[in-house]
Design a binder for these strands. Structure first.
Lengths: 344, 344
DNA sequence: CACTTGCGGTCAAGAACTGTCCGCAAGGGG
DNA sequence: CCCCTTGCGGACAGTTCTTGACCGCAAGTG
């Protein structure tokens, strides 16, 4: 019944706009009996959304934090705010979430009602880019490229090579990589018949996008991904080599794929290569993986981890906000290196 | 059938992560026959989500931009990006969406899985506030207050008055208002037994939140809202008075409620009072309402509107990105004022 | 022209949904 | 302590919807 499915969505949205609802309230809003509301709540629960309920005078239903983010139901204002927020995040003001921002932006951009689009556009027009060091890349170009990667559509563009000469290119885009200052596109260049990375700020996209392409089988299992990660690591001012005392699979599952290169050592440990612009950020990120680790280089990062650990120790007993489980495992000693646990 | 509703949600999410899907693909993913997929697509359509379809070799289904934003299904990375983006937007880096950002933040905060919470927290920790002029208000406090307003929960806090003396307060929170530099809470003060506005940066919230309260009936229909808007207008460096040639209801429907005061004049026109920090932003916002208007004051804004209009004229023929419909209506002449149309 | 893809009608079996009725459990206030 | 409110869930019966299977049709693409 369409009625039923729609009601589930509405129930989810009601639970998001308000925190406490009585069964009777919900029943009224949804136009069904309280019994049916109870059944619907059960359905949501069995779908994995944690709906908490409490009895008594102050009782009611409330949506809690679960294993997965439920579908987010935003009103117009909120949608505009999200779009704007993502746009600024994508342009690099905040480190480490740029790629994800662009992906989310492409997602919301696809479905944003046009009446809201004009509002976003207007706000964009008056928003100045704060960080003048950042190379000038438009959020629009990034959104287009992200969508092209996602939908496997060829892109055509003019490209200005390092030497200065322009050329017309056509390529199959695979990944978008952000390296703190610049954006790169990892793509298969059709003229050159090989994998290439292009600096987005040197590209001038032609519209419309080209036809769809079938994902190319890559010479080494994951050329595009590997190139992207390699690039992400290499282009940063700091490059770190860290041993993580957990399986490569475990570590890879817990970090954003563009963030670093994971290479297995044995069943219980692996090497993580990451790049970053700021040591403090890198230290926290690595600690967040939640397994035991040891930093080998650079020395600055070793020192940073030491200092952070000390600061945390001084804040002794304070809630550290982490819910990651510390991975167990042996932690061999090595002079000059820092051993650190998870849960930071 | 729970199966059916869940499938609808999954279908919606599939359509969001990719742009073109063939019916057979979707059928495979969802574990049903293509015929059922067609039926499900029909259901989505009748729920208001515009699913476009095209026939032929390159055909398939695609989710388009519709009247309302569909439930947004974000993966972990994207959720973190959204949370971070909203946080920075809420703290005032972008004008005009701060309140909405806080509301959206409260919404996502309620359901954010804890494993993501720690990531957000870590990023927050390393993100420096760029705008040093902004008074120091934590996003956490704003989120808490927004949730308290939404859920109608009393708040208890220490408040430092202008003169400097502290006092313990308990209040029923109604609105959160952002004025470019500062955040204010409009609330009913239980000790004083009257409406008050508190500067958020002078509040020190106590946890946990107090009991829920029944919304107070207000002496004048919408005291809290009116106070909030009044505050929003008054606290800005620029205050504008504008006649809009449309009914007060129409105008009120098209602008964010905190943005300005709308007062009816007659059936076809009304007065809009708005405050702002930047003239260009104000000009765009007013133009975005999409009805004919005339700016009376301040003179700077009159000039700004004039200049913007000229710039747009020079960009003649270019797409202006607006899809708002120009409201018809008479536009009386008045010396020294600027007449401007909608659709800018 | 051949092929792919989406569209929608019809049918019958089966499954799910809903409202109604019931008693039970748990929290909060008087 | 009692009473009220609120959520929980079993049972039942009638209604409704869902699903897969089959069909022919329409519309892009090469």
């Amino acid at each position: 019944m369409l009625e039923t499915s729609a009601r589930l969505l509405r129930l989810l949205s009601l639970l998001q706009i308000h925190r406490d609802w009585s069964g009777a309230d919900l029943a009224g809003r949804l136009g069904v009996t309280p019994r049916t509301v109870r059944r619907d709540v059960d359905k949501l629960r069995s779908l994995g959304y944690p709906v908490h309920a409490s009895t008594g005078t102050a009782g009611g239903y409330r949506l809690g934090a679960g294993a997965a983010l439920p579908p987010l139901l935003l009103d117009d204002e909120e949608a505009v705010a999200v779009a704007i927020g993502l746009r600024s995040a994508a342009l690099g003001s905040v480190e480490g979430i740029a790629e994800a921002s662009v992906r989310a932006l492409a997602k919301i951009d696809q479905v944003l009602p046009s009446r809201l689009r004009s509002r976003v556009e207007a706000l964009r027009a008056v928003t100045v880019t704060v960080d003048s060091r950042a190379t000038k890349v438009s959020a629009d170009a990034l959104t287009l490229l992200a969508a092209a990667c996602r939908d496997r559509e060829r892109v055509r563009f003019e490209y200005t090579a390092r030497a200065g000469q322009d050329s017309a290119r056509e390529a199959e885009p695979y990944r978008l990589v952000h390296t703190g200052r610049r954006w790169y596109l990892v793509a298969y260049d059709l003229q050159r018949a090989d994998w290439r990375t292009f600096r987005v700020d040197r590209m001038r996209l032609k519209t419309p996008a080209g036809p769809r392409f079938a994902p190319r089988e890559e010479p080494d299992k994951d050329t595009a991904g590997w190139t992207a990660r390699r690039l992400a690591v290499d282009q940063h001012p700091y490059r770190a080599r860290i041993t993580m005392f957990a399986s490569a699979q475990t570590v890879a599952d817990r970090i954003p794929p563009e963030y670093g290169l994971v290479e297995p050592v044995d069943a219980d440990s692996c090497t993580l290569m990451v790049g970053g612009d700021r040591l403090d950020v890198m230290a926290l990120y690595v600690a967040l993986v939640g397994v035991e680790f040891r930093v080998h280089e650079p020395p600055e990062l070793v020192e940073q981890v030491r200092a952070t650990a000390a600061r945390m120790a001084r804040a002794a007993g304070a809630e550290t906000g982490g819910d990651v489980d510390g991975g167990g495992g042996r932690v061999p000693a090595e002079p000059g290196a820092v051993d650190a646990g998870g849960g930071a």
